[in-house]
Design a protein around this nucleic acid. Structure first.
Length: 482
RNA sequence: GGCGUGGUAGCCAAGUGGUAAGGCCGAGCUCUGCAAAAGCUCUAUCGCGGGUUCGAUUCCCGCCCACGCCUCCA
């Protein structure tokens, strides 16, 4: 098993991953809120987590991946109300869309994908435990808050002591009933009492009807499914505070022994679009569909979203998609070359890698690429090393043994990076040319055979002006759309 | 105000105390009658000013610039 390191937000250091138990890594990712199609910014994070998981697998670990679905919150309720539909109907629709998008991106599915609404009882149980230990208090309207001052560790992730309250308190709206009953502005809500605009979205609880607060679901579900494997917890950088800070507070206080709630906290930076923040008003709020409509494949988008450091803000541009597309063609070609030199089939090889069959095989000339990738997921560096190897390797001159080693090592990297190379089109799709064009092309060919270059060029120009191009080969020609 | 990140070639982007990977684009060459494809080659002294050092883009200090979080947000 080779070493994999990640930057841990908790310690601000790059650390080798050492699972709590054996070689099973528990990995919890904060998933989507299913009220609309996820945008490319969401996917930048989910894709980074996918590469994280794949890299761990290639390194020889087993990964138990849990990613929740937030299917009750202000936004989902609002959406359901606007559409006059049941909450569940809305969230189930967007969940299906999310899954379809994930598949297009060639993302591995989490083994467990729990929904907030399926774990109301677990969340209530946590609140009960926290109330008993005086880490929480109920207010008169039937809401329950976490008492931040009761937890010394509060702020250890985000490095904020208690929140800077002087400014925020002044800004806080006194009319917001969620706010004014709190003992301290720093306290956060775990149970929200039922409000008028919640419609029929509420559950019974010891404090009356209401619904869980946002931070609680992740705590409850992570503890339920990964209680013994609290290794990696990951999400977007915006979640460091307050979401993850609050998760830690609730979770650690709810355990009798204050068990550490996850060892490794990994956060992905956001992305900019064409230099600016993504926003609906700027019309740069893209989904996978939008990018595909512009003629790019999901794998090109995947490449563009993951080819630089995950902890670094990236600027997503159409240029980066073009670059991705070209780079992928080279990766695909080399994949084809190594496979044919080794006499292996891509699908079968990737499947074997997925099952961990080649985890001990040697990296050969790609050792540097792997070492770079497994060092805090330096994808850009790994790609650099891969392209260098591609440039330096003549697959036709390899021995059968070396070809096999190379093909396996190369595809382990392809697997870790998660590129679905079958989506990469090397040859333009053939389009049947109309008779008129075919005739012109034939005339050009005849002129060429007669070595009447001037005439041949005339025909070529005419074809070009009509939007077609001719590709000559030794003993024939092909017609393609320009 | 508090916490944090970054400034490397036309664009994107790794990395290192000893004069800088890679990708895209562009240019040139080879090959083709031409073209396409392919292959080869070429393009930076690392924001600015100091300091430490035999030597810094890489360490330290100051400055400038850009950006993020502190409120729902991947």
């Amino acid at each position: 098993m080779s070493e994999v390191t990640f930057h841990n937000t908790l310690t601000r250091q790059r650390e080798p991953i050492e699972p709590t138990k054996g070689k099973l890594v528990g990995m919890y990712c904060c998933g989507p809120t299913v009220y609309a199609q996820a945008h490319i910014g969401n996917f930048r994070t989910f894709l980074s987590q996918d590469v994280m998981r794949r890299t761990l697998q290639v390194a020889g670990y087993k990964v138990l991946h849990v990613r929740n679905l937030t299917d009750v919150d202000d936004k989902t309720i609002k959406r359901a109300f606007e559409e006059g539909k049941a909450l569940r109907e809305v969230t189930e629709h967007w969940t299906r869309v999310f899954h379809a998008d994930c598949e297009r991106f060639n993302m591995l599915s989490p083994q467990i994908e729990p929904k907030a609404t399926d774990h109301i009882q677990e969340q209530i149980n946590m609140i009960v435990a926290l109330l008993e230990k005086d880490h929480a208090y109920a207010t008169e309207d039937g809401s329950v808050y976490f008492r931040v001052s009761s937890f010394d560790g509060y702020g250890k992730l985000s490095r904020l002591k208690e929140r800077e309250l002087t400014t925020t308190a002044a800004d806080a709206s006194p009319n917001d009933s969620d706010e004014y009953e709190r003992d301290s502005m720093a306290d956060f809500v775990m149970w929200k009492s039922r409000k008028e605009n919640d419609g029929d979205v509420f559950w019974d609880s010891p404090w009356g009807e209401g619904r869980p607060g946002w931070h609680l679901e992740c705590s409850a579900m992570a503890m339920k499914y990964l209680g013994n494997n609290l290794d990696i917890h990951s999400g977007g950088e915006d979640l460091v505070f307050p979401h993850h800070e609050n998760e830690i507070a609730q979770s650690e206080c709810s355990c009798s022994d204050h068990t550490q709630f996850f060892k490794y906290w990994i956060h992905c930076a956001h992305l900019l679009v064409e230099g600016g923040k993504m926003s609906k008003s700027l019309n740069n709020f893209y989904s996978v569909d939008d990018i595909e409509a512009k003629g790019f494949t999901p794998v090109a988008l995947r490449y563009a979203l993951t080819s630089s450091a995950y902890r670094q803000t990236i600027n997503f541009t159409m240029d980066s998609l073009h670059a991705a597309q070209s780079a992928l063609v080279r990766l695909k070609k080399f994949s084809d070359e190594t496979l044919s030199a080794a006499g292996l089939k891509r699908a079968a090889l990737l499947k074997a890698i997925d099952k961990g069959k080649h985890s001990k095989d040697s990296w050969g000339p790609l050792a540097k690429a792997w070492q770079t990738l497994s060092n805090d997921l330096n994808i850009a560096g790994a790609l650099g090393a891969i392209f260098t190897t591609i440039k330096e390797t003549k697959t036709t001159e390899l021995s059968a043994e070396a070809a096999q080693e190379l093909a396996i090592a190369y595809h382990k990297l392809v697997y870790a990076l998660g590129y679905d190379l079958t989506q990469v089109v090397i040859e333009k799709p053939k389009v049947e040319a109309p008779e008129e064009i075919k005739a012109l092309a034939q005339q050009r060919w005849d002129a060429k055979q007669a070595k009447d270059w001037a005439k041949a060029d005339e025909f070529r120009n005419e074809l070009t002006s009509k939007g077609w191009k001719i590709l000559d080969s030794k003993d024939g020609f092909e017609i393609e759309l320009l």
